[in-house]
Write a protein that binds this DNA or RNA. Structure first.
Lengths: 226, 226
DNA sequence: TCGTTCTCTTAGAGTTCTCTTAGTATCTGG
DNA sequence: CCAGATACTAAGAGAACTCTAAGAGAACGA
């Protein structure tokens, strides 16, 4: 998530809104809050957020109404819906019409963060990362090595590769990879990074090409031409 | 986290300060403590730390005041705030003032370490150290001597070279190198430094170039053009 | 539900690195 | 120029590191 990315929270319970705001700002995001449907809609226009966290239950105009309105005026901003546990099923289903994700209250802030992150990644990163003749299309998650298309990367393998491609040439320590790709605190004793590097090598470097994934003994790994 | 990185702890509870100090020093960091706001400010100026761990509650001048002062005089040193209770006002306040992260007491030392590490990584950046025609890229750990790329430096060799490149022209004693690169206490009887200087010379100075690694008889070694 | 795929752990083999030892070379002061 | 001090080098043992195969359990999809 790029620092300064704008997030709009539309939520009538101001203490929940506040909590979420603090957590997001802590991550470097720029946050604005609205406390009812109409002002939420207005803020969506003026603030031009990269994503919206939208409560279903709202005074004035409810979340579904806000969403419908947004889509009608052609706004494709990604939206995460917050639904109370007892929200009728048909309402939840109607989310499929235009929400990108939803969360049931009460929710874990970590959970919201994770989904937001995923959502933003889908939207903000339509870059193609290039390292030597390796291409990683972050929008479609397609990977090519020269002419050859690399198929069947699993989710974890892809994330590892993308992170490395975002930091080309740099030597990345196992701790760094663990915390960035696996979101584990460092100090955990595991060799899962080594194993996944092995998997990637089979798929990326495994067809007689000059290897791009380098081991830096005693430190970690780097993605680069030798 | 590079060994020898200077960290300043400003915390009035000396037992907490002590605990943190011990943990950090154990990781090879160089730590100084201050126990009130004004002396914290002073230490920030004199000690020139790479990061500051700053308690909000302090006698004399509180953490927010210290931070404000630092920023006013243009000091961009990264700061982690320690907040006693989970007071949102404090969080927001300090983050707005330019704190880089915060932790709520009581906190886990591991947690602090993790955040410190992340912070330093963000700041430390990718320097390229240069001594004469020798280049040491600390991000990629690539080393060049003029046009020639120096390959196959082992971890220890690289660390020694990087440390010397960070202290160019300075004569470094064996004890100094032992404690900074090997993290050994003084007085150990070993000639491992000599041996590694020898390895480095083969790889750095070994191809007919004018030698950069000088022996200073009776004292130690220096990295410099003669 | 059942079978498949994915993730992560474990453990052992092979490799590379580190550091010690011991012997040789070089320097310096007298 | 010699003797003692200091620095350098080669070789090897043991430790540390990395890679891989195999498999258990979780997650996923039909």
């Amino acid at each position: 998530m790029k620092p300064g990315t704008r997030i709009l929270i539309v939520e009538d319970d101001s203490s929940i809104a506040r909590l979420v705001q603090l957590e997001l700002e802590h991550r470097g995001l720029s946050v604005r809050c609205a406390y009812d449907g109409p002002s939420g809609l207005k803020a969506a226009g003026e603030f031009d957020p990269a994503a919206i966290v939208l409560d279903i239950m709202l005074p004035g105009l409810d979340g579904v109404g806000v969403l419908k309105n947004l889509r009608q005026r052609g706004d494709k901003v990604p939206v995460i819906m917050l639904t109370a546990r007892d929200t009728p099923a048909d309402k939840v289903h109607s989310l499929n019409l235009g929400a990108d994700d939803y969360l049931t209250k009460p929710f874990d802030t970590e959970e919201l963060l994770a989904r937001l992150k995923a959502l933003l990644r889908r939207v903000e990163g339509d870059e193609v990362l290039r390292v030597a003749d390796l291409e990683v299309d972050t929008a479609t998650r397609e990977v090519r090595r020269g002419e050859r298309k690399v198929e069947n990367l699993t989710a974890r393998e892809y994330e590892l590769l993308e992170f490395m491609a975002r930091n080309p040439r740099r030597v990345l320590s196992r701790d760094q990879l663990l915390s960035e790709v696996w979101e584990q605190e460092f100090g955990v004793e595991t060799n899962v990074v080594d194993v996944y590097i092995g998997y990637l090598r089979k798929k990326i470097d495994g067809s007689g090409e000059t290897p791009l994934i380098q081991t830096v003994r005693g430190v970690g790994y780097a993605l680069r031409k030798l």
